[in-house]
Design a protein around this nucleic acid. Sequence first.
DNA 1: GCAATATACTAGGACATCCAACGGTTTGGA
DNA 2: TCCAAACCGTTGGATGTCCTAGTATATTGC
Lengths: 168, 168
Amino acid sequence: MSPPLPRDPIADAQRNWESHGWSDVAAPMAAITAIMRTQQILLARIEGVLKPFGLTFARYELLALLSFARSGALPMNKASALLQVHPTSVTNAVDRLQTAGLVVRSPHPTDGRTTLIELTAEGRTLAKRATAVLNAEVFGQSGFGEEDVNQLIRILGDFRRGAGDFTG
Amino acid sequence: MSPPLPRDPIADAQRNWESHGWSDVAAPMAAITAIMRTQQILLARIEGVLKPFGLTFARYELLALLSFARSGALPMNKASALLQVHPTSVTNAVDRLQTAGLVVRSPHPTDGRTTLIELTAEGRTLAKRATAVLNAEVFGQSGFGEEDVNQLIRILGDFRRGAGDFTG
DNA sequence: GCAATATACTAGGACATCCAACGGTTTGGA
DNA sequence: TCCAAACCGTTGGATGTCCTAGTATATTGC
């Protein structure tokens, strides 16, 4: 990776915003930009860990979701809703997971429009192994302090509720 | 957009982690997943605002960066480092901005390897207009409380420093 | 019962990101 | 001095995301 910058580019941007008369929105701008950059860093770590398994984060999320479903199967639209991604993204992920033999498509017993995604035995095993490594190498070494983790969960939970992700 | 879910899927995932004996990493997992989702929501808002300008967030970031440079010009590699993205992403963005007449490439006066990106008059004007709308519609209505914004800046700043983004 | 509407999934296209590899330029040590 | 190593930007390929449109199946209303 590239060497660290001598200065925080986001803090610089915040100062630029303030010196241009946008002080009222400089802080939110900095917070939002920091979220963007943090996501990029975390995604790179996760993908690095998953690569040896032939998985990407999108595919892993789907595998993990299926592994927690009672029957190990979910309708495509349900998966799309729970993962909060576009239906076509699920189609894409399922295509690749199916090619890899980790899931199979099967028709819904009563609704002809719906397709069920079902975990195969290999899919379940791989999900388990990938989760173990992810827990050890990423989530277990996140770099966030314990109290900061709680703050993030609370702040981002409030935000997501306000954005209409969920109710309650 | 899709209707809100009855339950927070990330909180559910956290409970799943805990019930599978991974309590020690359940909270960081939830925090990281929440960052992923929050980034997605914010990016969608930003892109929605920028679309009428024919800009994406990646292109806007480059325009904004150039508009804050003293001379209105920056070497490609400098832009890549400050935006913290891969050089090929900058090449891609510059290609499109140049086609749109918002920037031009020019050779570096002393280093034949380096290419300078220069803002055109239209580029500077568009950056100004896009920033005004972004400030009003996104940063000014972020949905984060004032104190939460400060918390985010602090927490994510610590994280980014720890991840090697910058020193100091 | 049948037409109109709604829902589910997929195909094709645009865009961004990264990585690997390549050709041109500069730098630094033998 | 001169060549190897480092550096810079671009091209080509893979992946993911979204949007629009199209096909098939369900549901609703008259």
